[in-house]
């Protein structure tokens, strides 16, 4: 008998797979003929990417507490390092790894 958690994880994995696969395949199923997609669909596809990523950045900071110690200082410092490094080097892995290490050091040693 799978536990409730295993059932949830299997279903969540299935949902992610099904939605992603449907997205990848829809265009072949619907527009496999000569029909071109409606302009509205093309428009949404063009502009929704940056909007979603920006909202996910905000989502990642949802548990930050700007009014209570440590006042969001570890998050701010790590995000700034990430941004500056990325402006300077444009190397995604470098920006991600160094800012994450900085954040880990800050929350483990200074904010508890």
């Amino acid at each position: 008998m799978p536990s409730a958690n295993t059932t949830y994880l299997l279903l969540a994995t299935l949902v992610m797979f099904a939605v992603t696969y449907a997205l990848r395949g829809t265009v072949f199923a619907v527009f496999g003929g000569s029909r071109t997609p409606p302009r509205l669909i093309l428009y949404i596809g063009r502009v929704i990417g940056p909007a979603v990523i920006a909202s996910l950045v905000i989502y990642c900071f949802r548990n930050t507490t700007p009014l209570v110690w440590p006042y969001g200082l570890p998050e701010t410092a790590a995000a700034l390092v990430c941004i500056l490094l990325h402006i300077w080097k444009r190397n995604p892995l470098l920006s991600i790894i160094l800012s994450t290490i900085l954040y880990m050091v800050l929350v483990q040693h200074f904010s508890s």
């Binding site: 940056p50 990642c60 790590a78 995000a79 941004i83 920006s95 800012s99 994450t100 800050l106 929350v107």
Partner: peptide
């Protein structure tokens, strides 16, 4: 070792993707 704070990798990933898009 203590992995507390390692979830910032996801934050950094989205920041980097956003900066590249911008």
């Amino acid at each position: 070792f203590n992995t507390k704070g390692i979830d910032f990798a996801m934050t950094a990933l989205f920041i980097v993707i956003l900066m590249d898009q911008l």
